[in-house]
């Protein structure tokens, strides 16, 4: 019973940590066909923005959190103007953009090292307390993270399904040419997707750094895990990404508990390798339509 609770609690907090990041990754992949390797750096930007505002300006933690969303908005727009805008028409876009965003990530992370040093910082948006469940403490922070991830997911679903701009995003994702023929300005939609992803990434970065120590490279592991989650969910499938975050969180916790912490992450990687070999487009994924 204790084992179950330990795994349940730690898996839940891991899943809550990765859910928002996975949604941001999945959204950008699904609508632009872009594997955003700079997502890890964008998580770090969100975390540091909240930290810097609360630390250097006299603002409360919640204002720091909200302002970091604004910073994420700008980061998404900048990433669009530096890479996507110039590249999306190129036939090898899907692979070139991976390399371009790795380059951007390296630039951002090293700039963060320059500004904030590589030493770990403490996220002001942090709740230390927890609630005792049997012999296991469920941290409030995990529940807060879970709640915020859920809210992000619901707002995004509403936005995509119920608004004109959201429907346009879905239309562009399904058929870029057909959407253009309806008068949808594709570049504007791409920019919109990038800023939404930037805001979600910033929020996710704040939540993440409330749980693990904040360093400029804090986004590396979450990025890789978000990849794993999205591949298993099928890149572009948002609800599946949300669910898969928790499934994989529990998977990682179970492996760590049973076989030792060092096998948790490698087990996830092996899982994704198996999934890719078995289903090249993810478990719930569908082949992206290739146009000629």
């Amino acid at each position: 019973m204790t084992a179950f609770l330990v795994i349940f609690e730690s898996g839940l907090s891991l899943g809550a940590m990765y859910a928002a990041a996975s949604i941001a990754l999945s959204l950008v992949w699904g609508s632009i066909g872009m594997l955003n390797m700079a997502l890890g750096a964008m998580l770090a930007i969100g975390g540091y923005a909240s930290f810097a505002l609360v630390e250097y300006l006299p603002v409360p933690w919640w204002l720091g959190f909200l302002a970091s969303l604004g910073v994420g908005f700008i980061a998404g727009a900048v990433l669009y103007y530096v890479t996507v805008k110039w590249m999306y028409r190129v036939p090898t876009f899907d692979t070139s953009i991976v390399i371009a965003t790795v380059g951007v990530a390296i630039v951002i992370e090293n700039l963060l090292v320059k500004i904030f040093t590589a030493y770990a910082k403490k996220q002001p948006f942090l709740v230390d307390d927890g609630i005792l469940m049997g012999s296991v403490t469920m941290r409030y922070q995990s529940l807060i993270n879970l709640g915020i991830a859920l809210v992000i997911m619901l707002i995004l679903s509403w936005y995509l399904n119920r608004t004109r701009a959201g429907t346009a995003i879905l239309a562009v994702a399904q058929d870029r040419d057909a959407a253009q023929l309806m008068g949808v300005p594709v570049e504007r939609i791409f920019l919109l997707v990038m800023v939404i992803a930037g805001v979600i990434a910033a929020a996710s970065g704040v939540l993440l750094t409330a749980v693990i120590p904040m360093s400029p490279y804090v986004g590396h592991e979450p990025l890789l895990k978000a990849f794993i989650i999205c591949v298993i969910a099928g890149l572009g499938n948002l609800p599946a990404a949300f669910v898969a975050s928790f499934v994989l969180g529990w998977f990682e916790s179970a492996v760590s508990y049973g076989a030792g912490a060092r096998y948790g992450f490698p087990a996830m990687l092996v899982l994704v390798i198996i999934v890719l070999l078995w289903k090249p487009y993810g478990v719930f994924g569908r082949r992206r339509v290739t146009r000629v």
């Binding site: 899907d94 890789l224 990849f227 591949v231 390798i273 890719l276 090249p280």
Partner: peptide, 23 residues
Amino acid sequence: ATLRLQGPYVLLLTLAIAVVIQA
């Protein structure tokens, strides 16, 4: 292993292999 995969999935799979070996 990469035969059936398309562009970005090849990048992901091969990166995952490298990362798992390092880890």
